[in-house]
């Protein structure tokens, strides 16, 4: 059992506040992704959990035990590094067995565990090679095997797929997810890639400027972003925003249309995902500017109310730049944000 609790963790580098009062609980065997743009503090948080960095204030608990004063090796964790950190002077075998050797495990046990994890990661034929003789993808597998061989309670991953090419990344994504689910370890995975986050996570913590903006399941984060930042960060193309002014009694005026909305004192931001709109007789009228046929669908970038507004339409449609489109937003997919606090309004 390895539930992770992060309590009031803050980190300051000199004058710079990298993390503000982070509180997060990660359930046993959960796959948690820390997602955010570079510089948002996600790697710092991971390094604090790992013990390579010390929090300025706050506590880290793993499996009911406070660990923030312990050395990394005593925390029951292991880690996959962004550049793999596969030791170049050791063979793959010795790399995977490095942590086990440090624990003074017997040769037989080391051999058994190394071979088991190598088989799991499909690198059993590479055990006598050196890191310099491996491809990026193989090195990545060695790094994961090394972390798994420790049989840790928690496995931490810092952008482990960011150095692979797109195709390999997709392949490794699925494989990693399967292997981790089978190993029954709690996983924390840092990435800036939202597709990776969406596809792998049980839960995503979206981070922005040293704070966790939202921690929820991928579909929740996608459908019900807690803040404007999450709405615009997740989803490709991102969510559309339009200014809405109150038209009384829960009605809102959006780009000349009157739409049902929350009972609140305005103004608000009206938000809709590009794929949640259809061509219709009534709705928002926009002028198509750029049309991108992407095969699976048609991405149309329009101008609406002086803003960029994107719609994902059926690929069978014929749309030309300059066309006037009438787009009907799917009512249950419309979200509202307070422009002052940038938070979602129900």
């Amino acid at each position: 059992m390895a539930e992770i609790q992060i309590k009031n963790v803050a980190k300051q580098f000199g004058e710079y506040q990298a993390l503000h009062d982070i509180n997060l609980t990660i359930a046993d065997q959960e796959f948690m992704v820390l997602l955010g743009a570079s510089g948002c503090g996600k790697s710092t948080l991971l390094r604090i959990i790992c013990g390579l960095e010390t929090a300025t204030t706050g506590e880290v608990w793993i499996g009911g035990r406070r660990v923030d004063h312990l050395a990394p090796k005593d925390r029951g964790i292991s880690m996959v590094f962004q550049n793999y950190a596969v030791f170049p002077h050791l063979t793959v075998f010795e790399n995977i067995g490095f942590g086990l050797r440090m624990q003074k495990m017997s040769n037989d046990e080391v051999k058994r565990r190394v071979e088991r994890t190598a088989t799991l990661m499909h690198i059993e034929q590479l055990l006598q090679r050196y890191s310099g003789e491996l491809s990026g993808g193989q090195r990545q597998r060695v790094a994961v095997a090394r972390a798994l061989a420790m049989e840790p309670d928690v496995i931490l991953m810092d952008e482990p797929l960011s150095n692979l090419d797109a195709l390999l990344r997709m392949e490794m994504r699925a494989e990693l997810k399967g292997v981790l689910a089978e190993s029954k370890t709690t996983a924390i995975y840092v990435t800036h890639d939202q597709v990776e986050a969406m596809s792998m996570a049980d839960r995503i913590s979206v981070m922005h400027e040293g704070k966790i903006v939202q921690a929820a399941s991928p579909i929740e984060v996608y459908r019900n972003p807690a803040a404007e930042f999450v709405a615009s960060f997740i989803g490709n193309p991102p969510m559309n925003f339009l200014n809405a002014t109150p038209a009384g009694d829960g009605k809102w005026s959006v780009a000349g249309n009157v739409v049902d909305g929350p009972r609140a004192n305005g103004p608000l931001q009206f938000a809709i995902r590009p794929e949640d709109m259809q061509l219709s007789d009534a709705g928002l009228t926009a002028t198509a500017k750029v049309v991108e046929p992407l095969g699976a669908h048609l991405l149309v970038t329009c101008e609406l109310d002086g803003k960029m507004f994107r719609a994902v339409l059926d690929s069978d449609l014929t749309v030309n730049p300059g066309d006037a489109l009438t787009l009907a937003p799917q009512a249950d997919r419309v979200r509202w944000f307070d422009p002052g606090t940038t938070l979602a309004v129900a």
Binding site: C50, G51, L52, A71, P72, K73, I77, S78, M79, F81, Q82, N83, A85, F87, F98, G99, M102, Q103, R146, M150
Partner: peptide
């Protein structure tokens, strides 16, 4: 020598001497 090697070694239980 990249710092990541030292961090990896530390995480995997190597003392400063090791």
């Amino acid at each position: 020598i990249p710092r990541e090697y030292y961090e990896a070694a530390e995480v995997f239980g190597a003392s400063p001497w090791k």
